[in-house]
Design a binder for these strands. Structure first.
Length: 226
DNA sequence: GCGACAG
DNA sequence: ATCTTGTCGC
């Protein structure tokens, strides 16, 4: 698998001077620092983050909302040229740089990050949600629209229904129905948040649409800042 | 060697 | 992610 990844971009760009092979090594190191069993109490602000691309340039948007009210209180954005290609498993090396720049412009530090991508449900258990959570040292949750790895069964049709996302012998996430009769989302722990809490929080933030409010707003903002 | 493959 | 029109359903 690694062979495929490296081979696919051996003549392409880098991330902070890193080769894809070094990126994989870094993920393994950072992954060892992930804390997934922490319990956190009061959450007042949550941030959603998303990025849109156009001809080699990325636009990142971070939107902070109140919790559980889900009212937008602040939006920050950043633009940056991207050279690292999209490689399944190495998404963070393409999206994290711009995302972190946008985040640095925020005046309100959120208590939780909801990321458009996977957390522990990743080949090396270190998806974009883990990457951002560790870099910012803020609890984070991975909420992806489709599967990267793992086996799963279709959850029941009603909102709140969910099934396990399994890789080998371990449960790496849950496939959750956020609304009646809509495609489920893939939830996994990112940083300092348990899978159980992640699912509970996402269901609480998915008020009217398939995607939880933070991600939905960030997605709109990212594509609107051009 | 042949598929699978977050956004 | 992005390229792109109409169309099915509530």
């Amino acid at each position: 698998m690694q062979q495929t990844v490296i081979k696919k971009v051996k003549n392409t760009a880098f991330y902070m001077g890193m080769t894809p092979g070094e990126a994989v090594a870094l993920q393994r190191d950072m992954g060892a620092a992930v804390v997934t069993d922490s319990v956190f109490g009061s959450i007042n602000h949550v941030a959603g983050i998303d990025i849109s691309f156009r001809a080699g340039t990325a636009n990142a948007a971070v939107v902070v909302l109140t919790f559980p009210g889900m009212k937008v209180v602040e939006t920050a954005s950043a633009r940056k040229k991207v050279t690292f290609p999209y490689i399944p498993g190495l998404l963070a090396f393409r999206e994290a740089p711009v995302a972190l720049e946008a985040f640095a412009r925020l005046s309100t530090i959120p208590d939780l990050l909801v990321v458009d991508g996977h957390g522990l449900a990743h080949p090396r258990r270190f998806g974009l949600a883990c990457h951002l959570g560790v870099e910012l040292d803020i609890p984070s949750i991975g909420c992806a629209k489709s599967r990267l790895i793992g086996q799963w069964r279709e959850p029941a049709r009603r909102k709140g229904s969910s099934t396990r996302l399994i890789a080998g012998e371990e449960v790496i996430g849950r496939v959750v129905r956020t609304r009646d009769d809509v495609k489920p989302v893939f939830i996994s722990a990112g940083h300092k948040v348990s899978l159980k809490d992640a699912v509970r929080l996402v269901l609480r933030m998915a008020t009217k649409y398939r995607l939880p409010e933070p991600i939905r707003h960030a997605h709109i903002a990212a594509g609107h800042f051009w």
